[in-house]
Design a protein around this nucleic acid. Structure first.
Lengths: 221, 221
DNA sequence: GTCTATATTCCGATAGAC
DNA sequence: GTCTATCGGAATATAGAC
């Protein structure tokens, strides 16, 4: 029998793919259990509800990805205490790439789920995510502040935001081209090639001079 | 009576907001008609179906936005035939900003709808959008190729893609911070301030040197 | 743990009175 | 054009046999 995986894991795998493709509201439990070839009531047995299933789908990958991202930064700062913004960007991208290289961690599916959650955050994420990713964000922001002393803390945060949205969307394959053109001319099949295209853009963007503020007041909350 | 707008327009307005906030599948016709304070059967009367309503919501803004974007580029190329990549980026951003300035065009709501469609394209968009936005994309790509002669056509397309995803997400207020941190430190309330933050990042990214290809083969389809 | 059967609610869509 | 009423189906969730 090739279906050696147990029921709950098959549900998680199927749900992960379907949530990425059609979103939470756009995916029914019947689709999930049908794709996983399990009985429909198994979802409630293992996860309590559809909401609970989503949470489980996310939590399975969240911790490994956070740990991986922080480990990449730790390794970088150990090897090169005065690291540049480009080094930091590469560490961040490296975490996504390494995740994509590990089939046991779902490959790039979780990065795609992150890209989607970015636009359409599930209610339960708003409670749990800050606690789990707060440290990651703080660590990367602190590193970037050191590497970009010519920028204010606020502008560093903006650039981290720009870097993240560009990266996540690129790895997730969310192309304007795919949407706007009959014949797409960019393709995100190989994540390493995407990373090669990304790097000069992001590196130059991070290191660019501070914004010339036309409006004098702050952009902060 | 302050509800001077007619029924179909009130439906469009309510649906536009709800689709942006909860997505197509996550929004029911009952939510829409309730928010619009109209009878539920009015949707079918005016738009035939929920799908038809989505298409109408999109098409109301699609043409004005496309025309505005192209007009910005026309004006730029007339005033400055040898325009730079930064000029082009500003023209593109200018279209979104001007759309945001016009309440009769829904302000920034359509940009947010674009940002969402980017991740979760409605089936009907895949047919209609390339025809409507194909010219826009081709025009901007052609202008960028002239302004960035050191890049291959393919790499220019990638950078247009990076620029678009960063812009749309920034204007739509899709922040990693909002998702990852308890206390968000960036805020996208004023689109002009967002644009000020965006410009140096995107300008430097567009003008950065070509990627060093480690893998020799092409990234094209 | 896995299944069938079912409860209950909500969905989009339509028919027909006015 | 706008309303009420309702249809048929699909959604999540649960109860209970095995």
């Amino acid at each position: 029998m090739d279906s050696g995986k147990d029921t709950s894991q098959r549900i998680l795998d199927a749900a992960e793919c379907l949530f990425v493709e059609h979103g939470f509201a756009g995916t029914s439990m019947r689709q999930i259990t049908s794709a996983a070839a399990v009985n429909i009531s198994a979802v409630n047995y293992y996860f309590g509800s559809k909401d609970g299933l989503f949470q489980a789908v996310f939590e399975r990958r969240a911790e490994p990805f956070a740990l991986l991202s922080i480990a990449k930064l730790n390794a970088l700062q150990l090897a090169k205490p005065a690291c540049s913004a480009v080094d930091i960007a590469q560490a961040f991208m490296g975490a996504a790439l390494e995740m994509g290289r590990q089939p046991e961690h779902g490959g790039l599916v979780f990065v795609k789920l992150l890209a989607r959650s970015y636009v359409e955050p599930h209610p339960r994420l708003k409670e749990k995510l800050p606690l789990r990713y707060g440290e990651l964000t703080q660590r990367y922001l602190a590193a970037m502040r050191l590497a970009l002393p010519h920028l204010s803390d606020m502008e560093v945060a903006w650039r981290f935001q720009f870097m993240s949205s560009t990266m996540f969307n690129a790895f997730a394959g969310n192309n304007v081209m795919r949407l706007f053109m009959t014949q797409p001319i960019v393709n995100a099949r190989d994540p390493h090639k995407v990373a090669e295209m990304l790097l000069p853009f992001i590196a130059a963007g991070l290191n660019s001079p501070a914004a010339e503020l036309v409006t004098p007041s702050t952009t902060e909350v």
